[in-house]
Simulated assay, not measured.
Amino acid sequence: MFASTRRARVFASALAAFALLGTTACSSGPTAEADAATDAGYNLTADQNRITTEPVEEIAAKVPQDIRDRGTLVVTGSAGTVPPLRFYADDDATIIGSETDFAHLIGNVLDLDVELTAADWAQNFVRIDSGEADLFISNVTVTEERKEKYDFATYRLDSLAVEVKKDSGITFEGPEDIAGLKVGVGSGTNQEALLVEWNEQNIAAGLAPAEILYYQNAVDYYLALGSGRIDAYVGPNPTSAFHALQSGETEVAGTFSGAGLDLQGEIAVLTKKDNGLIEAINEAINHIIENGTYAQVLERWGITSEAIEVSRINPPGLPKTS
């Protein structure tokens, strides 16, 4: 009985199960969610009118010659993420969100066109390894293990959230609070590694084990959360905060650093190690921080709390688990 407009269909593909998390009143369907997002100031159309900046010749000159000759920066990222990070616009084809805005700003500084592509999480690393893509920009956390194969230039703090159904009574202040819960998480992510580590600690301390369930797409984990198949979902704080606001059916039970309790994690642009790109990327990010366009993107998508003061190359990352 939901209205089947193009805008509603696309927003539903990004936020997936919003309409199914609550009662099936027509006013709470995908169209209402899309209207709410638009009313809140989010542009969900293919015509993004992105924030732009001018090229900087001295930074652009540091890009490897083969990429400069090509004139295009190929950027890969996850296909199944949700607003406000990386999702599909109302034409079902254009990838939009804060992560794509940052990619385009970097391209502006480097005087390169940006080609956005999408793949499942693990496949993005394969694309970087093979040279099919130059950069992976999609909420990628710096980890010590990844630093062995890849170079990083940071652009955002990494905050994770524990999202639960509203009024569930679940709160999160530390690892012991996942004991006995069914917790959803994206497979292959750093939050998975943290959950596994915390679960092992809890079991060793005599607490009830958590059941960790794995998901790749928003449609799957929000359906599971809405139906009660899981008690909580752990994912990027921006997406959980956005979903909780727009759906009205969930809430954030707690937040923590993506690198764990003892280190503030950072989100970074990932590229193949020693391919000659990272210095130019790092300087491009610092340039947009200095000229204010970086802050404009954060404000545009409601993630100003994740701002950094300076981009760093290969900072300390999430420790290895073994």
Rank of each mutant, 00 (worst) to 15 (best):
16 A>V: 08
19 A>T: 05
24 T>H: 15
29 G>F: 01
36 A>E: 14
38 T>Y: 03
43 N>C: 13
44 L>W: 04
46 A>W: 06
46 A>K: 15
52 T>W: 09
60 A>E: 00
62 K>T: 03
63 V>H: 04
63 V>Y: 15
74 V>G: 04
75 V>H: 04
85 L>H: 04
103 A>L: 08
107 G>S: 11
107 G>N: 02
108 N>W: 08
110 L>P: 04
111 D>N: 15
119 A>F: 06
142 V>R: 05
143 T>H: 01
149 K>V: 05
151 D>Y: 06
162 V>Y: 01
171 T>P: 00
174 G>Q: 01
178 I>G: 06
179 A>Y: 11
186 G>Q: 15
188 G>A: 07
198 W>L: 10
199 N>Q: 06
203 I>L: 03
210 A>Q: 00
211 E>S: 15
213 L>P: 00
214 Y>I: 04
220 D>K: 00
222 Y>M: 12
225 L>S: 00
233 Y>T: 10
234 V>H: 06
236 P>Q: 13
236 P>T: 09
247 S>V: 00
248 G>Q: 03
255 T>F: 12
257 S>T: 12
258 G>L: 04
259 A>P: 11
263 L>K: 13
264 Q>Y: 02
265 G>T: 01
274 D>Q: 13
279 E>S: 12
283 E>M: 10
294 Y>I: 08
297 V>F: 12
298 L>K: 03
301 W>P: 09
303 I>H: 00
308 I>V: 14
311 S>F: 02
321 T>P: 04
321 T>R: 15
